[in-house]
Design a protein around this nucleic acid. Sequence first.
DNA 1: GCCAACGTTGGC
DNA 2: GCCAACGTTGGC
Length: 152
Amino acid sequence: MQYWLMKSEPGEFSIDDLKRVRVEPWDGIRNYQARNFIRDQMSRGDRAFFYHSSCKTPAIVGTMKIAGAAYPDPTAFDPKNAHYDPKSDPDNPTWMLVDVRFVRKFKHPLTLEQLKCERRLAGMRLLKRGNRLSVFPVDKAHWEHIHKMLEK
DNA sequence: GCCAACGTTGGC
DNA sequence: GCCAACGTTGGC
């Protein structure tokens, strides 16, 4: 089992939205590195942090489970969709997605500011300068340390 | 709104 | 294949 972090702008789709709908296709990924993680390395049952980005208080706000294997992202073929990609061939789709299932919403979000203060998270990709990837793996040690922070 | 970082595009 | 220009991300 692997651990992940997935970003979403809460104005677009938040942890509360996921809590309400329970399962959601994580669509709109248009970055090859993120696509490769999704397509090649994610498996059903993997765990992921839900991260709120581009908002007042960027934070890890909860966890979710990868609900199944990757499949083609239908929004890439919809001209009306903001993430429409006319170059993606329906017979050989460029963009893939996974369904995610709600697991929990943290009582108190772990803010980016808090996370930066943790020496044990120093190597985490989220905290690296210039990080823009919206989907990436999280080390088991980091996953566990972040859960320890919740107990405080 | 600013701007650094990074990915993508396209001319050569 | 190089690299400048451009677009996007995302914290601040």
